[in-house]
Amino acid sequence: MDLYNLIKGLTFLLMTLLGIFGNAVIALYFLGILHQKQKLKTSDVILSNLPWTNLIMILTRGVPHSLLVFGIKNMFNDVSCKVITFAFRVSRAMSICLTCLLSCYQCATVASSNPKWSYIKHKMQTFLLPTFIFLLILNSAVHIAGAINALSGRNSSRLLYTFNMGYCIVVFPDQFSFQANGYSIFTRDLVFVVLMTLASIKILLILYYHGKRIRGIKNPEENPESTKESRASKMIVILVSLYVFFFGIDSTIWLYQTTVSSEVHIVITDIRFFFSICYGSFFPIVILTFNKKIRTALKYSASGSQQEENDISYIKGHNE
């Protein structure tokens, strides 16, 4: 294995393991909340779905690509290639849509003192489930063509209009379908990125003017609820910033591939693949940094497990 492939393999493996472990921890935390039958806030309901979409995205992109780099080939047949291509693309799309939905809801929350924003917040709460279903149907419809054209075990060196993932290829019959698929995905991404960016800018402006107003009051009493909302808002703004950066590079390369190049080279694909899993891998770090409840639950769980091990050791030593 040459130096490039070794570095690429280790990098993908590290990012994949980080993403799987981090998102699994957060997903299990929310499952525990549901198991205890505690009611989640609307923002937490949206947030709780993100680790699952990230997990699917990393498992269907990071894992097979890491295995491919280390010489494991022919992992999938045609049917499994269609499934894994569809699962990755839909999970990636749901990740951007849920991040956008989360930022828009948080924007409505921090601006809810305005009756119009309060009305928008109420409507988003009311139609949250139909919104999830609509986004899933929309993204499935956008990506069904890619899944249908996914194949495995074919030599793509002479095939035009082909996306080569190494372990699977997506072959389009002509230039029109190739570019139509690329434009539809890029347009969808652009719409949601613009929406989440505008929502984040609005959040930052509200926080700025709120902080300026608070500083003008002598000896203000700190409002815990306001502090939590501020921390949650900052977390969401950072998530959006990461998303715009990572998936902006991903989408730019995607647009280049569909408009300039009729055949996608593997090095360019490697770069796009790397940035496509970066958001899922860094997502848990941001959540754990800003979400005090999850950090506290993990510390309590870890200390409880340690205490249980100490009790068992004490009992064994006492019996001996």
Rank of each mutant, 00 (worst) to 15 (best):
T259G: 06
L101K: 02
R213P: 10
F283T: 13
V237N: 04
F245Y: 10
I249G: 03
Q38W: 04
I249L: 15
L135K: 06
A150L: 02
S66H: 04
A180L: 09
F134A: 13
R89I: 12
Y209T: 11
C107N: 15
F290K: 02
M1Q: 08
C100S: 15
L28D: 11
I312N: 04
S112Y: 01
M124F: 09
I84F: 13
P284S: 01
S118T: 10
I133M: 12
S48G: 02
E221V: 14
M57R: 00
L198K: 00
L205G: 03
G248E: 01
H65R: 11
G153Q: 04
V170C: 11
I137H: 06
F283N: 10
L102C: 12
S177C: 03
K212C: 07
Y243W: 13
S261P: 03
G22N: 01
L135G: 07
Y4R: 05
G153P: 14
F172E: 10
N23G: 00
G22R: 07
V90S: 10
K123V: 09
K121C: 00
M165Y: 15
F275E: 08
E222F: 04
D78K: 05
V171I: 15
D311M: 13
K293L: 08
L13A: 14
L135V: 09
I7E: 04
L17R: 01
W52K: 09
L160E: 12
L40P: 08
L198C: 07
K293Y: 06
L151C: 06
G166A: 00
N23Y: 00
V260T: 09
S262C: 04
H318K: 14
T42F: 00
Y256F: 12
V142I: 15
Q306T: 14
L6N: 05
Y167P: 07
M235Y: 05
G280C: 03
L159E: 13
L31Y: 11
S80L: 12
L10K: 03
V191K: 07
I287R: 01
K293F: 07
V244G: 01
Y119R: 14
S226F: 14
I133Q: 03
F127M: 07
F163A: 15
I236G: 07
G146Y: 09
N139F: 06
I137D: 10
L14G: 01
N223I: 09
